[in-house]
């Protein structure tokens, strides 16, 4: 089977500012995870917003042989779920209520008992059981980020989009979340696209990487091809050493910033 998911010629703009140019992403096969790398403001979140369908623009997004448009708004909503970079707002709402209203607003065909079981299962995996009925405002930023992930998982999507899912998490949960995502891919297949800040985590968990720089893809492919000292110098403006771990995946050690005063 060839790719289940591919993206080409993708563009995006805010008003007159074009922030994505002709973006093409490596095709993904079932069970694969794609990492989107790139410095701040390189367009990662915008790419995610194009993939969720919330933002219009040119380009071809293909999932299981059909374009985003052919899936239709409802079809895309059933197949794709995203955890945006901003975690759920700190309101008086309880995580369970938020999960529940999301599932019901989107029309998930589950009985109350099934829905409760699914929510509880996800909360258990994400360590949210103890705060399931506490106001979101009383949760830490990290916990709220986990609720954001839970909101995407409760929909059980084919394509899971994660925008910096680990940025507010401590070391344990950073690994635990990505482990969970991989476990899910192994167990039930599907696809994941994740914008990631941490190069080593990206190299370790992703099958494919694409590096964005000022709205263009500068490199794409498997981690060992993509993460080279050359590219790190160009995109992140750091001098870095790249070695390989025992399983052959690249490990990056940034040594120093290149010309911190000067622009590119």
């Amino acid at each position: 089977m060839t790719g289940r998911f591919s993206v080409s010629n993708l563009g995006a703009r805010y008003g007159r500012a074009v922030v994505l140019h002709d973006v093409a992403l490596p095709a993904l096969r079932d069970g694969e995870m794609l990492g989107i790398l790139g410095p701040n403001a390189s367009g990662k979140s915008t790419l995610m917003r194009r993939l969720t369908g919330e933002m219009p623009g040119p380009g071809d997004i293909l999932l299981d042989g059909r374009t985003q448009r052919e899936h239709g708004r409802e079809g895309w909503r059933r197949a794709v779920a995203a955890a945006p970079q901003t975690p759920p707002a700190p309101s008086a709402l309880m995580p369970t209520e938020l999960m529940w209203s999301t599932a019901r607003a989107l029309g998930l065909a589950l009985s109350d008992a099934e829905l409760a079981a699914r929510i509880e299962g996800i909360f258990d995996e994400l360590g949210l059981g103890a705060v399931a009925l506490s106001p979101l405002a009383t949760l830490s930023g990290g916990k709220r980020q986990l609720v954001g992930l839970a909101l995407a998982l409760v929909r059980n999507p084919t394509l899971l989009l994660l925008d910096e899912p680990t940025s507010a998490l401590d070391l344990h949960w950073r690994l635990a979340v990505l482990d969970l995502v991989r476990r899910r891919l192994r167990a039930q297949g599907g696809l994941v696209v994740a914008a990631l800040h941490d190069l080593d985590l990206a190299a370790r968990y992703c099958d494919r990487l694409a590096v964005l720089h000022e709205g263009r893809v500068l490199a794409a492919g498997c981690p060992a091809e993509v993460l080279t000292p050359d590219l790190l110098a160009r995109v992140y403006r750091v001098e870095a050493e790249v070695s390989a771990d025992p399983e052959g995946r690249p490990v990056v050690r940034a040594l120093r910033a290149i010309d911190p005063g000067k622009g590119d």
Binding site: T52, R77, S101, A105
Partner: peptide, 15 residues
Amino acid sequence: TLLRGGEAHARSMGI
């Protein structure tokens, strides 16, 4: 109700 979880989430659901 789900809007109380923030606009970013609602938008990402295609609302």
